[in-house]
Design a protein around this nucleic acid. Structure first.
Length: 922
RNA sequence: GCGGGUAUGGUGGAAUUGGUAGACACGCUAGACUUAGGAUCUAGUGCCGUGAGGCGUGGGGGUUCGACUCCCUUUACCCGCACCA
C-alpha cells in the first residue's frame, strides 16, 4: 500500500501523546485564542458522524490560529450528569457513575482516533465531585446575592440586609417577588429569623418558592420550559402537567433586559439571536388598576394598548388567579369551581390543543377607571396565569382573542376606531385613529398610547411597565444523577453549608423516588451524607444545565482547588473566541450560560459579561436510509426500477448490507429471520437496487453511520476532510459516503506527488518556477481568506486544486511542498505530520507557522478577458495586463468573433473594466 | 398567525464588494493501461438542438451595460415561538 494511513495515523497519535504536543499553558507574551466545542453528553451509543462535524471545524480553526502565532486553548470534556444514565441505573441498579465512566472511555477512544488537538490535561466532567463542588459554590453565591436595580447588577445580600435595618424596604429598588410586602426598619428588626428569611427569599437570586411548575410524571421530575416540546417532555415524550410545588428557582428575570441588550455585542447568527429575543419576549406597556365593585380589591392588568381603554367592557382573569375565589358571587361559586378544577386537570398539551373557547362569568363587576361603567369579570383559560398579571382588560374591537370571546358569549362590542366595522373581527392596525374615547379622541394610536399612560400615571391607577415572557428558571430536579444542593433545612428555613463545605452524592439503595414521593436522595440516611446538618438535607438535585453553564471557565484553570477559576487565568483567556455546537441548545444552555456569566461578572469574579463572542451552529448531518420494496402480502422484493409495476410496502434496510444502493442479497436473507426465504425481482443487470431517503439518523431507520467504520476504511484524515467537504458548516446536509473516495484520492495524489514508484520519499531541490510559486501563493491566499469566514468546505476544494495543478506542473519542489504541508496540516494533521517529518523537520508541524503570502507571485502580465455581448460571455481574448481601455477596445473590435456576434449591427456602448471584463451592448 | 432561514446540473456543492454560472468532488459516457486495483491516465458531461444558435440559479416583475448576488411580489420546504394581553 502506497499511502498507509493506518500506520501513519497511529504513529503520530502516539507521538502527540508521548510528547504532550497539545499541552497549553498561559503565556502573557502571546495573544490568546479560545476555541471551544459544546461538550458532549456521553451516551451509551457513542459518537455518530454528526458529532465530530463541529469538533473537526473547531480543531481546524484552533490549529490554524496556532500556526498564526496564537496561544490556543482548545479543551474537551463531558457533560456527564443526565437522565439517560440515571434511567439505566434505575433499570440495572448499577451506580450511574459506573456507566458514565464506561461511556466516557468509549467517547475518548473515538475522539482520540480522529486526531484532535485537545489539551486533555484540562479535561473536565460535570459529574466529578471536584468539578461540581464549584457548581455548588456558584449556587451559594447566587443564594447570597440580590439584584440591585439602581446599579443594575447583582450584589451581596448583606448590603440588602443593611438597607432593611436602616430603612426597611420602602425605597428598595431590587428585583423581587411581585407580592413582597412593604416593611419599615422597625418591622424588620422585629421580625423573627424565619420571617426575615422568608423576606430575603423574595430577593435572593437563588430562592425557594411555591410555583406552578411543569411536572412530568413519566420522568418523575419537573422540567424547564425549554425542555418541553409541544406540551410533551423533549426527552421521552411524556405528558407534562401544571403542578404547584416548592422549588428552587434562579431569578434570571432580573437579567431580562441585559440578556436582550447583550445580544447586540456578540457575533451569533440572526436566527439564534431571534430565538433568544423571542424567548425573553420584551413588551412595553402599562399596568392599570380596576377596582372591584363593592370591595377593596383591585385587579391589576397589563396592556400594551392603553389607548384602547375606552373599548374595555369586560375583564378576564386566569382561572388560577388568586382573586377568583374572593370575587366569585354566591350563585356562581359552584360553576366557577368546576371550571377551575377542569382547567387544572388539563395537561399543558390539552390546554394548548383545545382551541375552542371556554370561560365563565364570575358574577362580579369591576369599575371602569374613566367611565365608571360596570365591567363584567370573567375567567378563561386563554389568559395565562404566569404572564403579566394573570388578568387582561378585554378590548374586543382591538384584539382578536377578546373579539372571539365576546362573540362566543354574546358580549357587546364597543367600537373606538374611526371608520371601523366591528362585525367582521378585531382591528389590530396601529395606524387607526381613536374615537368614542373622550380625551383620546382623534389621536393616532401611538400618540394615544403615550397620552393614556400619562393620564393613568397622573391619576395614580397604573404605571408604565415592561413585561417579559421569560420566567424565573426552575432549578430543582427530583432526580439522583445531578449536583446536590449545598443546602440543609432547619424547620422550613433553608441554610447554606459553610464556605468550605461541599456535598457529594450519597449512596442510595435505589434510584427511585421514595414511597411517599420524595426524590431519590431522601433515601440516603443521615450517615450516608458526607455532611449532614439541621433537620434534613435538601433532597432535590440541580438540572442538567447547571454544570454546563460555566464549564468554559473551568477549562481555564481545571485543577484549582482554591477557587472555581482564578481571576488571573480568566483574565488571560477571557471570552470564548469561537464556540461551535448544535442549534438545539439555542435557548437553554446558551441563555443560562449568558446569565451565569453576567452574574459572575457582577460579583467581580470574572472580567467579561458575555461568555461566547462568536458562535457557530453546525447543521445536522442527516442519514441516508436505504429502502427495499416488498410486494404486499408476499415475501418478494422488487428492485427500485420496477416498483411502479407492483403494489409494494416500503421497508428500511440496514445500510451495512447495501453497497452503492445495491443490496447484498445473501446478507439480507441472513439479516432477519423473516427474510430467510425472500424472493427478488431484479433489474436488467441482475441486481437489486434499493431506494433511498434522507432523514435524521436513528437506530430504527438502520441509517446510523459511525465514524469508526469510515476511519477504519479511509483513515481519520480522510474523514476530517470529507466532513468539511460536504458543504457549509451551518447547513443541514445528508450524509452520503459515495463522495468520500474523492477526498481520499486527493490525499493519495499528494502522497504520490512526494513518493516515487518504490514509495520512497522524494522531493526536488530545484528552485521552484514562477508557475509553481503562483499555485502555492494563490492557495495560501485563498485558504487564509476562506478560513477567516469559516468556509471550511471551499478550503478543501482549494487544496485539491493546488495538488491538481502541482501534478500538472510535475512539481514536488521542496519549498512548495513545505508550504502546502503546513496549509494542509489543520485539516489532515497525520499525513501532514508524516510528510513534514520526511522533509527533515524535527518538531511537529503544529509548531510551524502559516506560510506568508507574497502578492508578487500572483501578478500576471497577461489577462484573459471575457468578452460579453449584451451581458452574455461569448469568447475570451488574452491581452497584456498593462493595456489601456482604448487598446482593449481596439483589440476586441478587431477580433473576428466580434463581427460574428454583432452580426452587422453596430455597438451602442462598450463597457470595459480593466483587468476584469468587456461588455459590448448592441 | 408571528419571527428567522433555505431554494443553483443526475448528486454534494462553488461563485468573497453586482462582472466568465455550475469551481471542486461524486456519478455517468467513451477510450487507454494493467502484475484485475475500492488503482491510474486521457477525453467528455447544465438543458434543448445535427448545427448555427437558443434556454438556464423555485415562479413572476423591476433596477442595471451586466443580477445566483440588489429591490418588489409569490410559491415550497426547514427551524423557533404561538392564546404573551
Amino acid at each position: 500500500m502506497e499511502y498507509n494511513f493506518k500506520e501513519i495515523e497511529f504513529k503520530w497519535q502516539d507521538y502527540w501523546k508521548k510528547n504532550n504536543t497539545y499541552l497549553v499553558l498561559e503565556d502573557l507574551n502571546t495573544p490568546k485564542f479560545y476555541a471551544l466545542d459544546m461538550f458532549p453528553y456521553p451516551s451509551g451509543a457513542g459518537l455518530h458522524v454528526g458529532h465530530p462535524l463541529g469538533y473537526i471545524a473547531s480543531d481546524i480553526f484552533a490549529r490554524y490560529k496556532k500556526l498564526k502565532g496564537f496561544n490556543v486553548l482548545h479543551p474537551m470534556g463531558y457533560d456527564s450528569f443526565g437522565l439517560p444514565t440515571e434511567q439505566y441505573a434505575i433499570e440495572t441498579g448499577i451506580h450511574p457513575s459506573i456507566a458514565t465512566k464506561k461511556n466516557i472511555e468509549t467517547y475518548r477512544k473515538q475522539l482520540d482516533r480522529l486526531g484532535f488537538s485537545y489539551d486533555w490535561s484540562r479535561e473536565i466532567q460535570t459529574s466529578d465531585p471536584n468539578y461540581y463542588k464549584w457548581t455548588q459554590w456558584i449556587f451559594k453565591q447566587l443564594f447570597n446575592s440580590f439584584y440591585c436595580n439602581i446599579d443594575d447588577k447583582a450584589k451581596h445580600i448583606s448590603e440588602l440586609i443593611k438597607e432593611f435595618e436602616i430603612n426597611g424596604n420602602i425605597n428598595t429598588k431590587a428585583s423581587c417577588d411581585e407580592k413582597t410586602p412593604i416593611f419599615s426598619s422597625t418591622d424588620w428588626i422585629g421580625f423573627s429569623e424565619e420571617e426575615k428569611e422568608n423576606i430575603l427569599q423574595k430577593y435572593r437570586l437563588a430562592f425557594l418558592s411555591d410555583t406552578w411548575v411543569n411536572w412530568c410524571e413519566g420522568l418523575g421530575t419537573v422540567l424547564a420550559n425549554d425542555e418541553i416540546k409541544d406540551g410533551l417532555s423533549e426527552r421521552g415524550g411524556f405528558v407534562v402537567e401544571q403542578k404547584l410545588m416548592k422549588q428552587w428557582l434562579l431569578r434570571i428575570t432580573a437579567y431580562s433586559d441585559r440578556l436582550l441588550e447583550g445580544l447586540k455585542t456578540i457575533d451569533w447568527s440572526d436566527s439564534i439571536k431571534e430565538i433568544q429575543k423571542n424567548w425573553i419576549g420584551k413588551s412595553d406597556g402599562t399596568s392599570i388598576d380596576f377596582k372591584i365593585e363593592n370591595t377593596k380589591n383591585i385587579i391589576k392588568v397589563f396592556t400594551t394598548r392603553p389607548d384602547t381603554i375606552y373599548g374595555v367592557n369586560f375583564l378576564v382573569l386566569a382561572p388560577e388567579h388568586e382573586l377568583v375565589i374572593e370575587i366569585v358571587s354566591a350563585d356562581k361559586k359552584q360553576e366557577v369551581n368546576n371550571y377551575v378544577n377542569e382547567v387544572k386537570l388539563k395537561s399543558e398539551r390539552d390546554r394548548q390543543a383545545g382551541k375552542h373557547i371556554t370561560g365563565i362569568f364570575t358574577g362580579s363587576y369591576a369599575v371602569h377607571p374613566f367611565t365608571k361603567d360596570k365591567v363584567a369579570i370573567w375567567i378563561s383559560d386563554y389568559v395565562l396565569a404566569n404572564y403579566g398579571t394573570g388578568a387582561v382588560m378585554a378590548v374586543p374591537c382591538g384584539d382578536q382573542r377578546d373579539w372571539d370571546f365576546a362573540k362566543y358569549f354574546g358580549i357587546n362590542i364597543i367600537n373606538i376606531f374611526k371608520d371601523n366595522d366591528v362585525n367582521n373581527g378585531a382591528n389590530t392596525n396601529k395606524d387607526n385613529i381613536i374615537t368614542n374615547s373622550e380625551f383620546l379622541n382623534d389621536l393616532f394610536v401611538t400618540d394615544a398610547i403615550n397620552l393614556a399612560i400619562k393620564r393613568i400615571e397622573d391619576i395614580g391607577i397604573g404605571k408604565r411597565k415592561t413585561n417579559y415572557r421569560l420566567r424565573d428558571a426552575v432549578f430543582s430536579r427530583q432526580r439522583y444523577w445531578g449536583e446536590p444542593f449545598p443546602v440543609y433545612f432547619k424547620g422550613d428555613i433553608p441554610r447554606l453549608l459553610e464556605d468550605n463545605e461541599y456535598l457529594e452524592l450519597p449512596p442510595v439503595d435505589k434510584y427511585l423516588p421514595t414511597n411517599t414521593g420524595e426524590p431519590p436522595l431522601a433515601r440516603a440516611k443521615k450517615e450516608d451524607w458526607n455532611i449532614f446538618k439541621g433537620d434534613r438535607m435538601e433532597n432535590n438535585v440541580m438540572p442538567g444545565w447547571a454544570g454546563s453553564s460555566w464549564y468554559f471557565l473551568r477549562y481555564m484553570d481545571p485543577k484549582n482547588e482554591l477557587t472555581f477559576c482564578s481571576k488571573e487565568k480568566s483574565d488571560y483567556w477571557g471570552q470564548v473566541d469561537l464556540y461551535i455546537g448544535g442549534a438545539e441548545h439555542s435557548v437553554g444552555h446558551l441563555l443560562y450560560s449568558r446569565f451565569w456569566t453576567k452574574f459572575l461578572f457582577d460579583r467581580g469574579y470574572i472580567s467579561f459579561d458575555e461568555p461566547f463572542k462568536k458562535l457557530i451552529n453546525q447543521g445536522m448531518i442527516l442519514g441516508r436510509s436505504n429502502l427495499v420494496y416488498r410486494i404486499k402480502n408476499t415475501n418478494t422484493f422488487v428492485t427500485f426500477e420496477k416498483i411502479k409495476d407492483y403494489d409494494t410496502t416500503i421497508l428500511h434496510v440496514d445500510i451495512d448490507i447495501v453497497e452503492n444502493d445495491f443490496l447484498d442479497i445473501a446478507r439480507f436473507r441472513k439479516w432477519r429471520k423473516e427474510f430467510n426465504n425472500a424472493e427478488f425481482i431484479l433489474n436488467d443487470q441482475k441486481k437489486y437496487l434499493c431506494g433511498y431517503e434522507t432523514e435524521k439518523m436513528s437506530k430504527s431507520k438502520y441509517n446510523v453511520q459511525t465514524p469508526d467504520q469510515l476511519v477504519e476504511k479511509f483513515g481519520a484524515d480522510t474523514l476530517r476532510l470529507y466532513e468539511m467537504f460536504l458543504g457549509p458548516l451551518e447547513q443541514f446536509k445528508p450524509w452520503d459516503t459515495k463522495g468520500i473516495n474523492g477526498v481520499h484520492n486527493f490525499l493519495r495524489k499528494f502522497w504520490r506527488l512526494v513518493h516515487d514508484e518504490n514509495n520512497k520519499f522524494t522531493v526536488s531541490e530545484n528552485k521552484p518556477s514562477h508557475e509553481n510559486l503562483r499555485t502555492l501563493h494563490k492557495t495560501i491566499k485563498k485558504v487564509d481568506e476562506d478560513i477567516s469566514r469559516f468556509s471550511f468546505n471551499t478550503i478543501v476544494s482549494t487544496l485539491m486544486i493546488c495538488i491538481n495543478e502541482l501534478l500538472d506542473q510535475k512539481c514536488n519542489n521542496r519549498e512548495v511542498i513545505k508550504g502546502f504541508t503546513i496549509l494542509l496540516s489543520p485539516y489532515a494533521p497525520h499525513i501532514a505530520e508524516e510528510i513534514w517529518n520526511k522533509l527533515g523537520n524535527k518538531e511537529s508541524v503544529f509548531f510551524s507557522s502559516f506560510p506568508e503570502y507574497k502578492p508578487e507571485y500572483l501578478k500576471q502580465n497577461k489577462i484573459d478577458y471575457p468578452v460579453s455581448f449584451n451581458g452574455k460571455m461569448r469568447y475570451k481574448i488574452t491581452l497584456p495586463a498593462t493595456n489601456s481601455k482604448k487598446e482593449i477596445e481596439a483589440a476586441v473590435m478587431q477580433h473576428e468573433k466580434t463581427k460574428h456576434y454583432l452580426s452587422n449591427k453596430s455597438p451602442k456602448k462598450i463597457i470595459i473594466i480593466p483587468q476584469r471584463i468587456v461588455n459590448i451592448v448592441f
